[in-house]
Amino acid sequence: MFELFGTTLASRLLLGTAQHPSPAILADAVKASGTSVVTVSLRREMAGGRAGEKFWSLIRSLGVRILPNTAGCHSVQEAVTTAKMAREVFGTNWIKLEVIGNHDTLQPDVFGLVEAARILCEDGFAVLPYTTDDLVVAERLLEAGCNVLMPWCAPIGSALGPVNIMALRSMRGHFPGVPLIVDAGLGRPSHAATVMELGFDAVLLNTAVARAADPVGMARAFGKAVEAGREAFSSGMLEPRDVAVPSTPTIGRAVFS
């Protein structure tokens, strides 16, 4: 169980809905993952088109919470307007706030992100900011009114997994009471387990499931990895040691010489 903005969620895995091979596979992947929250977006609807309606009907039928994003926005104005449009269509004040700063790395424009976060928090949004692992930016986001932080662990869609464990560990240590969700860069279930073992509260992923050879199987695998990582964190793991320590008791062993 996991609490976000006063809402109790059964799963610590948040799943993106993009790039799945078909709507049916998306629906099955959502169910297999056990997720409680899926991310969605807004795009231009062509005249007379019904693409949005079909997708929206599918998502509503899944019985999960909706987290709209501002993906593709490169300015504060774009992100703020998109967030407001999403609130009207999806009927939620939750927003995954993305203000993209670089085309190649899709890394956030953290200056625009803080500004947009402040505007949206003041307007009553529950802002989940897609940010870097920079501690100072994180502090600015909290000052702007954010209650949750979503650092990347590698570039979006890269599947690299956590490339800077020290930074993630540092972030967890600096903000012990803030829900931290690793968003972007996860490629394998073991990556998800790793960040959950570090004490992150949840993970958000999309490409790693949607582009897998079997998205439904991968969704299930990620669901298990997230649970395993969280339980490991809660259960107190051993610190690594440089010397061997026998696991079998040495007392009472036979002596043959």
Binding site: G16, T17, A18, Q19, H20, L26, T39, V40, S41, L42, R43, R44, E45, G49, A51, G52, E53, F55, W56, I59, P68, N69, A71, T82, M85, E88, V89, F90, I156, N206, T207
Partner: peptide
């Protein structure tokens, strides 16, 4: 807002965006 569309007067040169739900990550 949806409720304000009937009263919203358009002007020459306005830029209108019409968006709908789409898959997103």
């Amino acid at each position: 807002h949806k409720a304000g569309r009937a009263e919203f007067q358009l002007s020459d040169g306005d830029r209108i965006e019409i968006l709908s739900p789409m898959q997103g990550g």
